[in-house]
């Protein structure tokens, strides 16, 4: 455990290079709850793209539903993102931004077998046509509500799973159990950096 992005996070469970190689060939699960998460509700705010959209490598925006967005940011971009949104909040008649960083745990599920793992946990369509890269879906995952955000790392399929913090341990266990047959391993922030940052 080490301080990373201002949070106490696991660096690695086994050598990071080994973890990264394993994720590239099978699947892995990493806790990325340190992400800043901002909930944006209201009509009238139209971000540049309606689908998941990475702005400058530190902030991404995901449309969840009519009048509902999720903005994710790396801590260094978090303050800026919040300020920008608060400015919009003041200008628009009915827009509200809530910092939900503590409300959600974010888990990064990555690797060529990640979709197989996901298919065991959700009845939603997570195929390439059902959930293309940069696509967002909210669906039941291991019997709880989750936002599933697809954010491939280059050619490597990857999904961000956002679940409420109080069920996160339960979901972590469920994903690990479901992933057993596909060789899923937990990995730390060090290997996650190897795979490409993403937001």
């Amino acid at each position: 455990m080490e301080t990373y992005q201002g949070w106490e996070m696991p660096r690695e469970f086994r050598p990071a290079a080994e973890e990264a190689a394993h994720v590239r060939s099978a699947a892995g699960l990493c806790d990325v709850s340190w992400l800043v998460k901002l909930d944006v509700k209201g009509r009238g705010w139209t971000p540049a793209s309606s689908a998941g959209h990475t702005l400058d490598g530190t902030v991404s925006r995901w449309r969840l539903a009519a009048g509902h967005w999720l903005v994710l940011a790396r801590p260094e971009g978090g303050a800026g993102a919040l300020e920008g949104l608060q400015a919009a909040e003041r200008q628009l008649p009915c827009l509200h931004v809530t910092d939900v960083t503590s409300v959600y745990c974010a888990l990064l599920l990555a690797g060529p077998r990640s979709r197989d793992v996901l298919e065991k946990l959700t009845s939603a369509d997570v195929s390439d046509s059902g959930l293309p890269n940069q696509g967002a879906a909210q669906a039941g995952l291991a019997h709880v509500h989750a936002a599933i955000l697809r954010e491939d790392r280059g050619p490597l399929p990857a999904y961000l799973l956002l679940v409420r913090r109080d069920v996160a341990e339960s979901v972590w266990d469920a994903v690990n159990e479901a992933g057993g047959e596909y060789g899923l391993i937990p990995f730390g922030f060090s290997a996650a950096e190897h795979l490409g940052a993403g937001v």
Binding site: D39, H96, V100, T101, V103, Y104, V167
Partner: peptide
């Protein structure tokens, strides 16, 4: 109406 309800249970 202009009103939004956000569940922040898990965050607190």
């Amino acid at each position: 109406w202009c009103v939004h309800v956000t569940n922040v249970t898990g965050g607190l």
